[in-house]
């Protein structure tokens, strides 16, 4: 098996569930000159068909279950899910709201949980790095 290139080129799909947009700002901060994750080959693709890592901020509600499942299904293998922020991990401060189902793991399997409210860019990047490791494992398993 040739060397895996996933760690050199992890492409991300960022999906914003029921978030307050706090975590989203932090995700975008990772792309700015201060953090510049493109240095590591990370690309924010905006398209499940191109993505390796599904990065979800915010929690699951009645209306976005279908969307998250479709996006996850449409990502080609191998793929991992990174839940960013308290909301994505467990529902966060919205957990008790009438329309909220809970964390992302209620609908798709989550590989990495990134805590924080909001999650800091450093920990988001750390989460992605852990995601890459999980990606690598999945690739080995399927190979």
């Amino acid at each position: 098996m040739p060397m895996s290139l996933f760690k050199r080129s992890p492409w991300i799909l960022h999906y914003d569930g029921s978030s307050c947009n706090g975590c989203d700002i932090e995700v975008l901060a990772c792309l700015t000159p201060l953090y510049d994750v493109e240095r590591f080959g990370v690309v924010n693709t905006g398209n499940p068909k191109h993505a390796d890592i599904l990065l979800v901020t915010g929690s699951v509600n009645e209306r976005n279950i279908e969307i998250i499942q479709n996006l996850y299904r449409q990502m080609p293998d191998p793929k991992v899910v990174v839940a960013v922020g308290a909301c994505a991990c467990s529902g966060g401060i919205f957990a008790r709201a009438y329309n909220i189902q809970g964390g992302i793991d209620q609908v798709v399997p989550v590989d990495v949980y990134v805590p924080g409210c909001a999650a800091r860019p450093e920990s988001i990047i750390d989460g992605v790095v852990s995601g890459i490791a999980a990606l690598e494992q999945k690739r080995k398993r399927s190979a």
């Binding site: 999906y15 398209n47 499940p48 068909k49 279908e66 969307i67 998250i68 479709n70 996006l71 299904r73 449409q74």
Partner: peptide, 9 residues
């Protein structure tokens, strides 16, 4: 069926 429509079915 599996073409991309912004996550909608």
């Amino acid at each position: 069926a599996d073409f991309y429509t912004s996550g909608r079915t």
